[in-house]
């Protein structure tokens, strides 16, 4: 299903349909996350991917254009690059542990340690929250700062504050040239 949706995105030319399909893609991947026990992640993906990002893409479309122009470049070079990269990736997965195996390296280091210690040290049922906010508090502080910075960036780029200043700058430039 996910692959089909992704290929439909490749083929489509109407950007409106692409925005909708990317929402569908997010919902499907949220379902996949639920089946892989990551309920928190699925929750976030459903809210962010299907909710906010679709609205933002639609907002961009309203400010730009609705259809994609067909390109004249041949698709062979990108296809070659993609196939080579894909082959390299699959070669890399050959000695990965099996899906769901309990003795994979991921499962034998800090993960179970957090699960055990969280019971007495933090004492809240949702281990994801306890790792997020407590054991990895620095990480989360950093992520919050990234979100903050991205918000500031968007405001600087398109909130209109900049337009006003640029108009002033242009006026100054003209007066200097005179």
């Amino acid at each position: 299903m996910l692959v089909l949706t992704a290929i439909a995105v490749v083929r489509m030319r109407s950007l409106f349909a692409i925005a909708m399909l990317s929402g569908v893609f997010s919902l499907l991947s949220a379902l996949l996350f639920v089946t892989m026990d990551a309920v928190d992640v699925a929750f976030t993906e459903a809210a962010v991917g299907a909710g906010i990002s679709t609205v933002l893409v639609l907002g961009t479309l309203a400010l730009t254009s609705r259809f994609e122009k067909p390109t004249k470049r041949s698709p062979m070079v990108p296809l070659f690059v993609v196939l080579v990269t894909g082959a390299a990736l699959i070669y890399g997965t050959l000695d990965m542990p099996n899906f769901g195996s309990p003795d994979a390296p991921v499962q034998t280091h800090v993960g179970p340690d957090y699960l055990e210690r969280s019971v007495e040290e933090i004492d809240i049922p949702n281990v994801v929250t306890s790792i997020l906010a407590s054991y990895r508090g620095y990480d989360t502080l950093g992520e919050t700062a990234v979100v903050f910075t991205a918000g500031i960036g968007v405001l600087l780029l398109i909130s209109g504050l900049r337009l006003r200043r640029r108009r002033d700058d242009e006026d100054e430039d003209e007066s200097e040239e005179v």
């Binding site: 990551a38 976030t44 991921v106 990480d139």
Partner: peptide, 10 residues
């Protein structure tokens, strides 16, 4: 394992 969940959530 909850650790990948935390990383991906953020």
């Amino acid at each position: 394992n909850p650790l990948p969940h935390v990383l991906i959530l953020t």
